[in-house]
Structures are given as C-alpha cells and as structure tokens.
Design a protein around this nucleic acid. Structure first.
Ligand code: SF4
Ligand code: SF4
Lengths: 137, 137
DNA sequence: ATTAAATACTACCTTGTTGTAGTATTTTAC
DNA sequence: GTAAAATACTACAACAAGGTAGTATTTAAT
C-alpha cells in the first residue's frame, strides 16, 4: 500500500482535465490551475501520454486532451501506471515474497481493507471525479 | 495515505513479539526470526523503546519486552509513531493544505475508504495479530 | 577484575523519489 | 521562410528513506 506523490499529481491533472472532457489543456494553464511544479508537470504529461490516457498535440496551439473516454479510465489504472502493477496489493508486513502461505493474522486483518481500497480505486472513473478549481487561488 | 517500509518492519517486530507477550527477545534472535536487517532492526528497537511500546533490558542476558499490555497497542499508534501523526489522513490529491474546503469530488470518493483504513488500524491491537513464524525458514 | 553479550549513540553511505535545467523538435500564425 | 509557442527528450540535482559501520556503554556470569 503506497500512493506516491506523483500518482496524486496525476489525479490532480486528469481530474482537472475531466472537468471538460473534450477540451485542450496546455501545460502552462494546467500548472496555474493545479500547482504542480511546471517542469515536473510537463514530464508527467508526457508520461501519461505514453500510457495512453491522454494525447499531446504539438505546435502553435497545442496541448493535451484525452485519448479515450473518461469513463473508461479508473483511478486504479492511473496508480498502476505510475507506481507500478500491484503496488496497492503488496504484503502489509513488507515481505517481497510471502513467508507464509498468504495467510497470517496480519494478512487476515488487512485483507478486507485492502480489497476496499482496490474496489474504490477500480470503481471510480475520471468521469466521476471531475472537479472545479476555485478561481481565487 | 502512506505506510513506510519501516512501519511494516515495526509490524513484523511487534507482531512477532506479541506471540509471547511477556517473553524477552534479543535483537539477534528477532533478526533470525523476521529477516529485518540486523543493524536497522536494532535502531528500530531503540526507537520503539523511546515511543514506549517496548522497554530494553541491557546486559548479559538482556533484550526487549513489552512496556505495556499488548491489547493497548493498536496498529494505528505504531504507524503514527513511525510515519508521523496524521500520515494516513493526508490529502489524496497531495496538497499540503486543502485548496478546497475539505470537499471536492476526489475527497468524497476517498473519504469512506480512508475511514475504513483508519478504523481497521485503530481497532486492531497487537493482541489480535500475534503470529507464528514458520520454523523452516 | 575480566570478559562476553547485550543495547545506545552518532555519523555516514546507498537507494529511490521528486524536482529542475537545458536543449531539441514540432507545428502554425504571420 | 521566420519566429513564436507549444511538446519531447535526457541528464542530473536535491531530498528523503532505508540501511550500515564503528564505537561506547551497560550488565552479569565467571
Ligand atoms: S500472509 Fe502475511 S507475510 Fe504473507 S503476504 Fe500476507 S501479510 Fe505478508
Ligand atoms: S477536499 Fe480535495 S483538496 Fe481538499 S483535502 Fe480533500 S481531497 Fe484534498
């Protein structure tokens, strides 16, 4: 269970873009809207393009827009793209490979909660979380 | 929401010690049982002593033993001691201070799950998770 | 007293994550 | 064509987390 800061940045970016699904967003404007360090934001945008969530349009009036419907992108997909496959599903005791047979008291305690996390992340699409940025910030 | 590797190590240590609540555990034996790097384990044990979970007994036949009843130590207390107060309760969008009024679609989506995590960690005491280490490892 | 076996302390090394800089490339308005 | 405004790429800097080393201190069996 980890959720890197970069994943959180991705939530900000895509969540903000989902506000108007078909609009074109420039890195500059995004930076002003969601306060992710500009250069890092650009790198992240490129990354998200490579993962197929968005596509970039270069040139004079370029920017970024969604490459697919926002209802098909889930939060879990985003986390797994950034933090790696199965990053949420790791051993709660920090073992790389389970020393028990995926059954110890700690595992039992955590299992239900872990499933809840995965369920929440996988059932929430970007369409559900497009949020408005306050103007006065 | 983060759970550092060090917190997971702490789970291993205290969970293992909870197996026999009143026993005395040496760092060396713990290292063999739970595979936490020995020097790091020792530092962590000192740390956990300072936080009052366990107490150290120095000398020839020294070691570590619980400083209080295992039923009074919750997983949340351990996490907060290691990762810092409120580490679980952080903004899911990565903002240090909330830019909305603690209400945005993302917040709403995450709130219930976050509460579930906190509930699980705070309702589980060490008494509940003392587990047996497999002998053949 | 000596010595072995344990913890305590402090500084440093290593690794991974986060963030920055510089330069190249693409596209379009003019 | 030229210049402006955008993204693309690559390398590296800064910081935090994880892990190691060396030495000091404590205790008790002998
Ligand atoms: S059974 Fe225990 S050791 Fe194995 S993956 Fe689950 S929590 Fe980790
Ligand atoms: S309301 Fe949104 S920005 Fe504010 S703390 Fe919650 S998730 Fe973060």
């Amino acid at each position: 269970m980890n959720l890197s800061k970069t994943s959180k940045y991705a939530f900000r970016i895509l969540g903000h873009m989902a506000k108007d699904e078909h609009a074109l967003y420039s890195a500059q404007q995004l930076h002003k809207d969601i306060y992710v360090p500009e250069r890092y934001l650009r790198r992240l945008l490129t990354d998200l393009s490579k993962h197929g969530f968005i596509k970039s349009i270069q040139g004079r009036h370029g920017g970024f827009t969604f490459a697919c419907d926002t209802s098909t992108i889930t939060l879990l997909q985003i986390v797994e793209a950034i933090d790696g496959q199965g990053s949420i599903n790791e051993c709660i005791l920090g073992y790389d490979i389970c020393v028990f047979n995926h059954s110890c008291p700690m595992h039992d305690v955590w299992e239900e909660t872990k499933l809840k996390i995965i369920e929440t992340l996988s059932k929430t699409s970007l369409k559900d979380i497009h949020y408005k940025i306050l103007e006065d910030l």
